[in-house]
């Protein structure tokens, strides 16, 4: 094995059900699109090795179920994330409105050391759909991202592979920066054990 430690970047993809999380991930990793992905249940991930500024890193992209009630059990894999991708459907205003709560929920569950600087990327997906159906303008989305501390924003089409590569390049770079900043912080616990009891506390309301 190489003497240098292999770098694993953990990326969490969040967003409402049906906005195209699974499709984006598959387009990026497998260069494939299928109209018939089933609704994601539980969680899954794909990995991809990429070069970021001459460094070989493995990206682990976590895909989750969109219906929020399924998030409570999945918090286990939020931990140790290096970047969070928030996806919405530009033709569905509800999915845009919920971005904020997805972001908040992530910060609560993942509890990164420095929430202010934790890297997010916002993707407005399904730009291939005819303009007449579009609900969220680029301007509005950009304003939102600006207000949240300058989150990078991309408009994508998983179906037609528009901007997917570019978006994930930024995701990888930001994740790597985050990962390296963690390395300088000796206080950051390596692993946080998860168990049933712990996750129980959050939600037995």
């Amino acid at each position: 094995m190489a003497s240098r430690k292999k770098i694993l970047l953990k990326v969490i993809i969040l967003g409402d059900s049906g906005v195209g999380k699974t499709s984006l991930m598959n387009q990026y990793v497998n260069k494939k699109f299928s109209a018939s992905y089933k609704a994601t249940i539980g969680a899954d991930f794909l990995t991809k090795e990429v070069l970021v500024d001459d460094r070989l890193v493995t990206m682990q992209l976590w895909d989750t179920a969109g219906q929020e009630r399924f998030q409570s059990l999945g918090v286990a894999f939020y931990r140790g994330a290096d970047c969070c991708v928030l996806v919405y459907d530009v033709n569905n205003s509800k999915s845009f409105d919920t971005l904020d709560s997805w972001r908040d929920e992530f910060l609560i569950q993942a509890s990164p050391m420095d929430p202010e600087s934790f890297p997010f990327v916002v993707l407005g997906n399904k730009v291939d759909v005819e303009d007449s159906k579009r609900m969220i303008s680029s301007k509005r989305a950009q304003a939102f991202c600006q207000a949240k501390g300058g989150i990078p924003y991309f408009e994508t089409s998983a179906k037609e592979a528009v901007n997917v590569e570019q978006a994930f390049e930024v995701i990888a770079r930001n994740a790597l920066a985050q990962e390296e900043s963690q390395d300088f912080n000796p206080d950051f616990p390596e692993t946080i054990p998860i168990n049933m009891n712990e996750s129980n506390e959050g939600c037995s309301c």
């Binding site: 089933k38 249940i41 059990l73 692993t191 998860i194 168990n195 049933m196 996750s199």
Partner: peptide
Amino acid sequence: LDSTNFFFFFRMLLVWFKR
């Protein structure tokens, strides 16, 4: 492996192995 939350069985149990 920190896997005793058995989360990896979530999908199987939720929809009775449908997937």
